[in-house]
Design a protein around this nucleic acid. Structure first.
Length: 777
DNA sequence: ACCGTATTCAGCGCG
DNA sequence: TGAATACGGT
């Protein structure tokens, strides 16, 4: 106990006053307004540690986050603080994962088995497509994605199908928009999911609410279980989430919500900023703490961001400040086209990388829309700058992965209709479309699951020939045999058996195209993941009673059902520049941040110009973008850009003007950025958050700078003189990369660059202006 | 059953 | 512009 106590004390000393108060006030409702970079995670994790330290049992603590990533980070940091044995009993996870877990236990009250399936967005859309077909509705008017959004927001606002259909206003709206059948689709959709023993993402929150509303004993149970509740990113809660928290906390009100209204950027998907603004009404005797000291960014960046967000009306007043260095002003770059914009960014990254000896991970390029990534990618590729795009198709949504997972799902939950339809004829078993259509129609007519129909085909008069009937029987037998196997074998054994026995592996193996090979490898990767899962979990934490029970396939599925791409362990993610939308960048930080496409009608987006609320959300988004940066922000815009195939001219965004001119440098208005940064480096050898990203302490670099200063010379002239002697074929030495051979030289003047093959690190492209190559004789 | 062509659509996206 | 999907022909 005592080493732990010491640890707690140490960290307590690390907290500033506001953070300390937010941690120590464990009783009663508190709201923590946490400015960007103000140590929010630290407060949350330390608060959890503090609760346990005060003798609160771990299982009485509930900590809710929005993303798996946030949950993971929080877990890791709490584990570090107090050790995993105690911490692992804390209920810590995303809203969805925690309530999914509770619904496995309590869902039977609502008619769901504990092995219910969680439908992802694709499954949901497929269900909607089926309904549209059956109802003979036009999928142009009723676009599945749009229908699903409508259903999703209804559920997020706790509207039952009944209420949706009875609500006069909603019905009027739907009629007015030419979609009067939305209510019917909603009803049928819910029925179908229920018959499949499946919940979609919103059902997890919706049904949790039903549980708490209709079963007082359940409400009572969890109110008493969760004596202390913490909610991260409270400004992002939708009504369903807000209401669960409210119910659970109603008894003892030991509720701590943490958020930043200035970073609320998800109103478009149902987040209600009022939840944080109205906290004071819900909990009149609340306390509020503001974390206003920023530990992330330079003064310039903090001030630039402040000057922007000040233009918003709806906000909780706060003053974000920092003790960090002054830093350099935000730098504006104007390009004539989107391609030039990409080039500017790529070159700037290249230069800063060389100049400051930074890793690629020190850089992020942020943009408003995914479509912008193309030009940026191209430019980076041309300079051989490795990058990673976030938000591509997630591993778990690839076809082959979904196919195999569908086998698992159907094995675990036979009623899972989407899984059944997906695999009944894959690999091909001569059960064609006509047959599957008959099964779907019959199931829906008799209001049963598809499995029920194919298990007892005679009771449902499908009118199939004996051959097909036999094939279906074989399929049923196969799935049942998997289920039997699952009783005694662990997840990996069953998974591998299914992958081989079902013919899926064979089918993929026959495809020798590069895509086919990659699909096969993906399946192997999935199986490896399952193996890891099986092994990792069987050796439990030390000191715990040995967990002799094996990990089942069902547990694996539950584990991954709520995972998304962002959670995949980035193996080959060594050292790359990050490309992502601003939304995806929330919660992250980078030394150098480029914000691309800061143009009217793109950012703010044209759709947001109609309402003040929407425009303010765009502004918060811009605020989020700026505050991702630790050292330096670059804002770029292009005067023309292709949109949907035709060239559009664009003007710089109004947001650029909203940055107070003290904190922004316009093109040509100041010296080249190189100068100010070098100056900073020379005169303010600070304890920089950049340190960990610098490849090595690099004292030679400093010595060199000093030497240059003494000489009264600058690096530029020195380097050009040296580098003009370089030719391809020469052996050279780089202070960091070591010895190498020049393969090629191209470009002129300051853009002259060399392709060098280094013995240590392989091929690199270097701008000679910065590379300081030494010629070896 | 499958492949190539036509058509359509285009904002951000947690789980 | 280009990707994703629907459709139609063989």
């Amino acid at each position: 106990m005592s080493p732990k106590l010491a640890l707690l004390k140490n960290i307590l000393e690390d907290l500033n006053e506001a953070q300390k108060l937010a941690v120590e006030n464990i009783d009663g409702p508190i709201m923590v307004i946490a400015g960007a970079g103000s140590g929010k995670t630290r407060v949350l994790t330390y608060r959890v540690a503090y609760l346990l330290h005060k003798g609160v049992d771990a299982f009485h603590v509930l900590a809710l986050t929005f993303t798996n990533k946030a949950a993971k980070e929080m877990k890791e940091r709490v584990y570090q603080l107090i050790g995993s044995n105690e911490a692992k009993n804390v209920w810590m996870g995303t809203f969805h994962s925690i309530f999914a877990r509770i619904l496995r236990i309590e869902g039977h009250r609502l008619g769901y088995p504990s092995n219910y399936t969680i439908y992802d967005t694709d499954d949901s859309k497929n269900v909607i497509k089926q309904i549209l077909k059956e109802q003979e509705l036009d999928d142009k008017t009723y676009k599945p994605g749009m229908v699903l959004n409508r259903i999703s927001s209804a559920k997020s606002s706790l509207y039952s199908t009944q209420k949706y259909n009875d609500d006069f206003e909603i019905q009027q709206q739907d009629k007015a928009s030419g979609k009067p059948k939305l209510g019917l689709i909603f009803t049928l959709y819910n029925q179908r999911c229920f018959r499949s023993s499946a919940m979609d993402f919103d059902d997890l929150l919706y049904n949790m609410n039903v549980l708490l509303r209709d079963f007082p004993e359940v409400l009572y149970k969890y109110q008493n279980l969760f004596k202390y509740i913490l909610v991260d990113e409270y400004q992002d809660t939708n009504f369903a989430q807000y209401f669960i928290v409210k119910q659970l906390a109603a008894n003892n009100e030991n509720l701590c919500v943490v958020g930043d209204d200035a970073q609320s950027i998800y109103a478009f998907r149902g987040a209600n900023i009022q939840n944080i603004l109205n906290f004071k009404n819900d909990y009149p005797d609340f306390k509020t703490y503001k974390l206003e000291q920023n530990y992330r960014s330079t003064k310039m960046i903090v001030n630039a961001a402040n000057s922007v967000i000040a233009k918003n009306k709806d906000q909780i007043s706060k003053i974000i400040w920092t003790q960090n260095n002054e830093g350099a002003p935000v730098q504006l770059m104007r390009a004539s086209t989107e391609n030039e914009e990409g080039q500017f960014i790529a070159h700037s990254i290249f230069e800063n990388k060389m100049n400051h000896q930074l890793m690629n991970t020190a850089f992020a390029v942020l943009y408003r829309t995914n479509a912008q990534s193309r030009a940026l990618e191209e430019a980076l590729r041309r300079l051989n700058i490795p990058y990673r795009i976030y938000g591509g198709l997630s591993f778990y949504r690839r076809k082959e992965i979904k196919d195999l997972l569908a086998y698992f799902r159907l094995t675990i939950n036979h009623k899972d209709g989407e899984a059944l339809i997906r695999i009944i004829n894959y690999p091909a078993r001569s059960i064609g479309k006509t047959t599957t259509d008959k099964i779907i129609v019959s199931a829906s007519e008799h209001e049963v699951s598809a499995w029920e129909v194919i298990e007892k085909p005679h009771e449902y008069n499908l009118g199939l020939n004996s051959g097909t009937t036999e094939k279906i029987r074989a399929f049923v037998t196969m799935i049942k045999s998997y289920a039997v196997m699952m009783e005694t074998k662990d997840a990996y054994e069953v998974a591998k058996y299914i992958a081989l026995h079902s013919g899926l592996m064979r089918d993929l193996n026959e495809d020798k195209t590069p895509e086919g090979i990659s699909r096969y490898e993906n399946i192997e990767e999935l199986l490896n993941g399952i193996k890891e899962f099986t092994e990792q979990e069987s050796k439990t934490e030390e000191g715990e009673p040995a967990d002799t029970s094996m990990k089942t396939l069902g547990e694996y599925l539950q584990d991954i059902a709520l995972l998304t791409d962002a959670d995949a362990d980035d193996k080959d993610d060594h050292d790359k520049v990050s490309l992502m939308t601003i939304h995806q960048a929330k919660g992250l930080e980078f030394p150098y941040v480029y914000i691309a496409g800061v143009e009217e009608n793109l950012f703010p987006s044209i759709q947001s110009l109609g309402s003040r609320a929407d425009l303010e959300e765009e502004r918060r988004l811009f605020y989020v973008a700026i505050t991702r940066a630790m050292e330096k922000v670059f804002i770029t815009y292009a005067e023309s850009r292709y949109k949907y195939g035709n060239l559009n001219f664009s003007e710089p965004s109004r947001f650029i003007d909203e940055i107070d001119e003290e904190f922004i440098e316009f093109p040509g208005s100041g010296g080249p950025e190189k100068r100010s940064l070098q100056t900073e480096e020379r005169y303010q050898p600070k304890k920089s958050p950049l340190k960990s990203l610098v490849k090595k302490p690099d004292t030679s670099h400093l010595t060199r700078l000093k030497k240059i200063t003494e000489n009264g010379n600058n690096s530029h002239t020195l380097e050009t003189d040296d580098s003009s002697l370089l030719q391809s074929g020469m052996d050279v030495e780089h202070e960091r990369f070591g010895k190498g051979k020049i393969l090629n030289i191209e470009g002129n003047g300051p853009n002259r660059k060399a392709t060098v093959f280094f013995q240590m690190v392989g091929q690199k492209q270097l701008l000679l202006k910065f590379a300081r190559l030494k010629i070896l004789k």
